[in-house]
């Protein structure tokens, strides 16, 4: 070793210090573990996504009119649902909820879609036919509150993007997994005859 010919520690060439951090063999083993962990993690994300769609309960929601100009800034739309704005009367907890608090929204089928019927701070037991969706409080107003569910962002496939008109209404099928995770499964464009005639 060349460094042994010198007594002062400062004369060790920088290469030696860089390699002395971890023995080569141990570093290599660590690298393989880390690579395996990364591959497994990506696979886990995919499996969670797939399983949520395959095993979850599918509900249908309606959005409020969307703004296709969102697509000019990226490949996704920001969606807002009819259940995003909840009347304050539905709140069944004690004190008013705080911002960012997790809440449980009970949904019930009404005509062709699900609508909120109650909001709890603890997960309630519900009869068959109703489903529970987890959300977070974004804002609390005097007579209502705004919730976030985590599927407000929709990555738009190119063929859907081309068909979108301003103020378009969408029907969204959301899949809720037994473990609470929810994701968008399918998005359809709702026919809106009134808009077609509007001059705009």
């Amino acid at each position: 070793m060349p460094s042994e010919t010198f007594s002062s520690p400062t004369s060790i060439p920088p290469v030696a210090t860089a390699q002395s951090a971890l023995p080569e063999a141990r570093r290599r083993v660590g690298m393989w573990w880390l690579l395996a962990a990364q591959v497994l993690f990506v696979l886990a994300v995919a499996v969670a996504g797939y399983a949520t769609g395959a095993l979850g309960e599918t509900i249908t929601l309606h959005t409020t009119p969307i703004d296709p100009r969102d697509l000019n800034y990226g490949d996704h739309l920001n969606l807002s649902y009819s259940i995003s704005q909840i009347p304050g009367g539905l709140w069944k907890g004690g004190a008013l909820p705080r911002r960012k608090q997790a809440v449980y929204v009970v949904l019930e089928p009404q005509q062709d879609r699900y609508e909120a019927v109650a909001v709890y701070s603890q997960e309630p037991a519900v009869p068959a036919g109703q489903v529970v969706l987890r959300g977070w409080v974004n804002d609390v107003f005097r007579r209502s509150m705004r919730l976030r569910y985590g599927f407000e962002k929709y990555y738009v496939p190119a063929e859907v993007g081309r068909k979108l008109k301003p103020k378009q209404l969408l029907r969204v099928q959301v899949s809720i997994a037994p473990w609470g995770q929810a994701r968008i499964k399918q998005v359809d464009i709702l026919p809106s005859p009134k808009q077609a005639k509007a001059p705009l």
């Binding site: 969670a48 996504g49 976030r148 985590g150 962002k153």
Partner: peptide
């Protein structure tokens, strides 16, 4: 690429948010 894989896989399954 690990970061890109996480983001693109999440997008594939519309898993964002949480």
């Amino acid at each position: 690429l690990f970061g890109a894989s996480i983001i693109l896989t999440s997008q594939m399954y519309q898993l964002i948010g949480y």
